[in-house]
Design a protein around this nucleic acid. Structure first.
Lengths: 176, 176
DNA sequence: CGAAGATTGTTGTCGAGGTCAACAATGTCT
DNA sequence: AGACATTGTTGACCTCGACAACAATCTTCG
């Protein structure tokens, strides 16, 4: 495909068409081109839970990333560190299953965390295939810091959602 | 990097170490390798709304994609079609802004929808830069079908979440 | 025991999306 | 008229999810 910046507009179709007469035309039919829609109708999206869940999820993650930017920990990395820290010695398959991510994806994530000196993959003494996952000392320290920042992020959600709505959502989703 | 399938395991460290004596050792220290964790501790993730929101969002989208697979409409495409259908003539910038996606991203999505004959980009009569977005006849038909399937998807959420929780979540998130 | 099958960690590859920068055409403001 | 903003567009990069294939290692069962 040739690198054309903007389809160079073949010809100029008669510009200067109708200009909206000062006397309002009684709304004959739907206006062909809106000028400034002011408010846009969401249509049936208003009755789709997935739409709103998606919106708030994106919003929360963006805030989380911004808060944890100083230590460069993504939401996914945070969840991995938390689970390993609370379940020392678990395997990659177990970790991937509980977090709902692919084993292949987790491999590359751990590869990075290993190189950053936060996690370790020790050979399992019982099963030659497994790796026993652990946090290094540095990893534990980093996790503590991450949890502090994450708690601040969480506290920041309250004003946005309202304390009542926040409590309600957390409870409803945790039991879902 | 050389294509090595699995780090060929340099040497075999003394296999057959401790085998967990029948007499329980009074829990000297943390067990070095777990056998079957049965239940895994989520740690502080239990108090992070983002974790649960993410989980349910992934679940809902997967179900949506599966339901709409027969007509090959993704959640993002669905939202685009719905908004265009409910706001004929709006511009790409407006659409991108209301859905919270990048203008650049929307361009390629519309490029695809155009080629599938579902949407049109008409030149705006008032502003030479804008495109007035519209659904074609085929697009309107496709949207109706998509809405039927999407409604079935939505109805399928009720048994999963419980009618009460569903209503509660939708209401809380819509007003958030 | 030993062959067949399942599990675990790994790499490669593909595609969908988000992000950012640059750009041409057009509109607006002073 | 010139400076500036907006709109649509392309290109490039990166993250992430999904699959397929594979070597090493259990597990099962004849």
């Amino acid at each position: 495909m040739p690198p054309a910046k903007r389809p160079p507009k073949k010809a100029k179709p008669a510009r200067k068409a109708a200009k909206k007469p000062a006397t309002l035309p009684l709304r004959k039919s739907a206006p062909p081109t809106r000028v400034s829609p002011a408010v846009i109708d969401l249509g049936v999206l208003n009755v789709h839970l997935g739409y709103f869940v998606r919106r708030i999820q994106v919003w929360i993650f963006q805030d989380f990333i911004r808060r944890l930017a100083p230590i460069d920990i993504s939401p996914a990395q945070f969840s991995v560190l938390v689970i390993i820290g609370a379940n020392e010695g678990l395997s990659q398959s177990e970790l991937a299953a509980t977090l709902g991510i692919e084993r292949a994806r987790l491999v590359r994530m751990l590869h990075l965390l290993d190189r950053r000196g936060l996690t370790e993959r020790l050979p399992s003494s019982a099963d030659g295939r497994r790796h026993a996952l652990r946090l290094t000392r540095a990893g534990q320290a980093q996790l503590r810091q991450a949890q502090t920042l994450a708690a601040q992020h969480e506290a920041g959600l309250l004003p946005k959602l309202g304390a009542e709505r926040y409590r309600l959502l957390l409870e409803a989703l945790r039991e879902a």
